[in-house]
Simulated scan of single mutants.
Amino acid sequence: MTTRNECQDSGDEPAALLQPSRRRFLQSAAAAATVGAAPHLRADAQTPAAPAARVPDSVPPRPVTLTVNGRAYTLQLEPRVTLLDALREYAGLMGTKKGCDRGQCGACTVIVNGRRINSCLTLAVMHEGETITTVEGLASNGVLSPVQRAFIEHDAFQCGYCTPGQLCSATALLDEFRNGTASVVTADVRTRPARLSDDEIRERMSGNICRCGAYANIVAAIRAAHEGGGQAANVRSIVHRMTDHGNA
């Protein structure tokens, strides 16, 4: 005769078999992961190592002669040196500023053969035999140019970092206008602009950014220089005037 205890034991046994232990489950999962990763491990072991990248031989510097502000500079430059770095780091002309170094701000503007360019976007070796003018070359024999004088009279700068590029760009702008070069806002590009309006100035100076926001005074200064309001002045007299104004 089957006892009560025997009936209970026979009923519990299948339930125990259907509930594996936690240790057995973990062991099975680990074994499955190992089997699945084995083909990938063999493939990685059989993949040959990529050859080491060959470092290109450096090009030695060579003499490059640049004519800057009427003076010849013979510099030992690598072909990859930009005109901006050549002026600042090799020729010692620190007036030209490095702003974005990507041709977006205009702080590095210089004049090459009468044409304004971003010196950070061109190589120095490309300008041998050309005439380069930086902000240091705008004044002549201690006398400020009309554009420089107008910038001072109209307070066309604040921190002054962008000012060298602004001055070079404005100087070239006036020459371009006198030569009849049209701009995007010129009514008829087939004829010379009738006058140098504020819209013309803003468009032609759009490549030069002033982060201080002195745009209104910059436009006024260029207009004054164009109309003859920015007459040449002695550098010492201007500095003396600014010093007195600061002391007042």
Rank of each mutant, 00 (worst) to 15 (best):
T67R: 14
A31N: 02
S28A: 15
L84K: 10
N5G: 00
P61K: 06
G70S: 09
D101A: 14
V59T: 14
Q27V: 08
K98C: 11
A91P: 11
N69E: 04
K97C: 06
N113G: 12
V64W: 07
A43V: 02
E130F: 00
G106T: 06
E6L: 02
I111V: 14
T67H: 07
Q8V: 07
P79F: 05
G95L: 11
L66M: 04
S28I: 05
A33T: 13
L17V: 13
V110W: 11
T133W: 01
P20E: 04
N113H: 02
K98R: 14
A16P: 00
R22L: 05
A45G: 10
H40S: 11
A29Q: 09
R116S: 15
A124Y: 05
T109V: 13
L17M: 06
L121W: 03
F25T: 09
V110A: 06
V81W: 09
G70W: 04
P14N: 04
D101C: 06
V125L: 04
H40N: 04
G70D: 03
L83T: 09
G11D: 12
A33F: 09
S119H: 03
V35E: 01
K98M: 04
R71C: 00
P51I: 01
C7W: 01
L75D: 11
I132Y: 00
I132S: 03
R102H: 15
T131H: 11
A43P: 00
A86Q: 12
D44N: 10
I132N: 02
R80E: 06
G99M: 05
A50V: 13
L41D: 00
Q104H: 06
Q8E: 06
V64N: 10
T74A: 12
L26V: 12
R116C: 11
H127D: 03
A45W: 13
G36N: 00
R62E: 13
D101K: 11
V64K: 05
T2A: 08
